[in-house]
Amino acid sequence: MNATQSLRQDVPEQGGRRPGGHGAAAPRPRPGADRDSAYWWEAVGEGRFLVQYCADCRTPRFPAREVCAVCLSLEWEWREGTGTGTVDGWTVTRRTFHPAFEAPYTVLRVALDDGPALYCWGCLVGADPDGLRRGRPVEAVFTDVGPDPADGGPTGGGAFTRVVDWRLRE
């Protein structure tokens, strides 16, 4: 069984508890959420994919920032994102750098459909990476990575039990 098959079995399409993700030997690293990004990660924990918009010039931005880089406005709002995008880049990693990620596995850089120059990363789940191309449509899935063994640690990431992965969209 190759790892992409194991991903398909291990990663539920929506939520579901699977400590460690990927059925691997260790928990996945937590997102080191900060005071800009905490709200976004909390929403991911609820299975929602949000996109931040400038409340003045309406430019969407990712990741979360306090100030709009286009018009410098400090006003923003969160909107429900499409949760879809296209593959902009990827790599198939064939050696293990962390026990939570048993090689091989594929990480995608996804160009979000919500606007230009919005990029999000995540693992490819439920498909083989052969034949991946830039421009291939994908959609977000939420992967439960279980409780953080270092809850309360310096990253402050203990509250976030889900991360965003991606599957191919037909």
Partner: peptide, 25 residues
């Protein structure tokens, strides 16, 4: 422990941890 701060918070949870991966993309 992998660095997960700032922009790396959007990469480390997906196993994007080593320079070889960052340049592979």
């Amino acid at each position: 422990a992998p660095a997960g701060a700032f922009d790396l918070q959007y990469q480390a949870p997906y196993g994007l941890l080593a320079p070889v991966q960052h340049y592979a993309v």
